[in-house]
């Protein structure tokens, strides 16, 4: 999830406030596919990623493209607007009750010595690693991926060498959205969700991206690990409802010590 956000920010310098809501749509899509068609979310995440890719390209082409040159506060307003629309459409379509996707995997646990390992979480974790690796292979070893990095590095330079920068942006936004789509489907058996979940997901992913360093894929991945460990420890040692206290303390700590994030480049 955070990997997708950091890709969109890193390439276009647009902060996608609709990120969490896109993820919730990924979750509902997995929910519909599971209840109507009986497809397990560990399979349907591919479909969810593809659907969100299309949504991401549409949002980029139809909306974000028009305000790329606009000041940041206008971009924030637009993305908040997209978030509101997505959230309320979900509310209209699925109602306010919390939903959860059932998967046979989610009920399995392994006993490894003194530990209980939740199989669903293990699979999700494994797939997240695979997806992050696949994304970085794409960005570093294919021409299209290199173009995305070039456009992120210097959009004017990319235009000079004859790149259709808008098309590159649409691909990048689509891939960013596809990442959350996949993430949404993959956590849907673990995490109960309802339409307003989007906001807290957005906040969590911002937290992760800021800790890891804006625009860094590795940072997003490590930041995700740190935040989840901080929250789990917080839930164990304090009360589960106070777990965010830990992750946000971590955020403040990182901002004090390394304002650019763990793997972020310093603004020049």
């Amino acid at each position: 999830m955070a990997v997708g956000l950091t890709l969109i920010f890193g390439v276009m310098r647009v902060v996608n406030f609709a990120h969490g809501d896109m993820m919730v749509w990924g979750m509902y899509l997995a929910f519909v596919l599971s209840t109507r068609a009986g497809i397990d979310p560990y399979v349907s995440f591919v479909v969810c990623a593809a659907a969100l890719f299309v949504l991401g390209v549409a949002v980029q082409r139809g909306l974000v493209d028009r305000i790329l040159a606009a000041p940041h506060e206008m971009q924030i307003l637009l993305m908040l607007g997209v978030a509101l629309v997505l959230e309320n459409t979900a509310l209209l379509a699925f109602g306010p009750e919390p939903a959860r996707v059932r998967s046979p995997l989610a009920r399995l646990t392994w006993d490894v010595g003194p530990l209980y390992v939740d199989v669903a979480r293990l699979v999700t974790f494994g797939l997240a690693i695979v997806l992050t690796l696949a994304l970085s292979l794409f960005l570093f070893h294919t021409e299209r991926g290199r173009l995305i990095r070039a456009a992120a590095d210097n959009p004017y330079g990319a235009m000079v060498i004859g790149t259709d920068v808008r098309r590159v942006y649409a691909t990048a936004f689509g891939i960013g959205a596809a990442c959350v789509g996949a993430a949404g489907a993959l956590v849907s058996p673990i995490l109960p969700f309802q339409p307003p979940t989007g906001l807290s997901l957005s906040v969590t992913s911002f937290n992760i991206v800021i800790i890891g360093g804006m625009g860094s894929l590795l940072g997003a991945f490590i930041g995700g690990l740190l935040v989840s460990v901080a929250e789990s420890l917080g839930a164990v040692f304090l009360r589960p409802s106070l777990k965010e206290l830990f992750s946000f303390s971590l955020l403040i700590l990182i901002l004090l010590l390394r304002p650019a994030g763990l793997f972020g480049r310093r603004a020049s």
Partner: peptide, 26 residues
Amino acid sequence: PAAVVAAGIAHVPEGRQLFPTMTVRE
């Protein structure tokens, strides 16, 4: 710009406009 490059004009812009975090080969 994309069509002009395709038509056969390459441009070395003022300030060079390279991709600073990518390698020379890239």
